[in-house]
């Protein structure tokens, strides 16, 4: 990805005028996005009455919506679950995929191309194609009846589903690193396994960070797998929990609380995005998907 020019060009009004229709279209779209998110944010600080009469924030900021959502509706619980799932899965994904990606990128051996093709194809496989046998196995083993084993299962599934994407992403990254480093390490008598952990893995850090952000967002927002495999209410991750919460809040009529819950769910990925949007965008176009 080319670096953006750092200096500001002087405003060339003729050029800007020619681009005016473009600006207009983009601004319209962006305004809509901001209105959508902004309104929800303001609504989450208002009372339900104010929302219905379209007078947001008329009586000041109501932080109690958040307190209610966090404690009474137990957003705290589903938030904690998702955080645990995402952090553990993202970490293990790197431990599992980085070595595999390195080997696939560096060594020629029978089956290399086959594994790569398999992983790339797996990225296009619909979940319906894998969910039935997995559920069959899991249910007959009785894994779903125990909270601990169910948690482990969920993390196992989140990892498994993201293995192909993570491996392929890191593979393109490793193949761009120079071989000179390993050669130098080999001359100094460092075994290849050690060279990988001490030299190559730290060098792949930018790629690892990008792919981890993606995995985090994916796992945080994951819905279908969790819906089927999270057998008890205490295990629900954020997306599934939010869904049932929204349904119940519609009946209790607590709209302000509902919007507060939506904002809480949305916040972690949004904060990540504010700080790392350039990395995320470069990741979408850089790895995995080739034009």
């Amino acid at each position: 990805m080319a670096r953006e020019k750092k200096y500001r060009e002087p405003v060339n009004w003729k050029k800007e005028l020619r681009l005016a229709p473009g600006y207009l279209i983009i601004l319209l779209w962006i305004t809509f996005t901001f209105v959508l998110l902004g309104w929800v944010l303001l609504a989450s600080f208002s009372t339900t009455k104010e929302i219905f009469s379209n007078k947001l924030l008329a009586s000041g900021l109501h932080f109690e919506n958040y307190v209610k959502a966090w404690i009474n509706s137990d957003v705290a619980g589903i938030f904690r679950n998702s955080l645990i799932y995402s952090v553990i899965s993202c970490t293990l994904l790197i431990v599992i995929c980085a070595p595999a990606a390195y080997v696939l990128a560096r060594f020629i051996f029978p089956g290399n191309k086959l594994i790569q093709t398999g992983f790339v194809s797996a990225m296009g496989v619909p979940v319906v194609m894998i969910v039935l046998p997995l559920f069959g196995i899991v249910a007959s083993m009785g894994i779903l009846n125990n909270v601990m084993s169910n948690t482990v299962l969920l993390i196992f599934l989140y990892i498994g589903i993201n293995v192909p994407y993570t491996t392929i992403f890191l593979m393109t990254f490793f193949s761009n690193l120079s071989r000179a480093f390993e050669e130098a390490a080999a001359i100094d008598g460092c075994p290849p396994t050690k060279a990988f952990w001490l030299i190559m893995l730290p060098m792949a850090q930018p790629g690892i960070i990008t792919v981890t952000i993606f995995n985090f967002i994916n796992i945080w927002n994951e819905y279908f797998i969790s819906l089927i495999f999270a057998n008890s209410d205490n295990l629900r991750p954020i997306a599934v929990g939010l869904y049932s919460m929204i349904n119940s809040m519609k009946y209790t009529g607590d709209w302000a609380g509902m919007f507060a819950a939506v904002v809480i769910v949305f916040l972690p990925t949004f904060i990540l995005y504010i700080f790392l949007s350039e990395k995320i965008i470069a990741g979408v176009t850089g790895g995995g998907v080739k034009g």
Partner: peptide, 14 residues
């Protein structure tokens, strides 16, 4: 570009 991509990182449920 960042704002246009923003909806993609939000949970579909939200």
């Amino acid at each position: 570009r960042a704002v246009i991509y923003l909806p993609n990182i939000v949970s579909a449920v939200a």
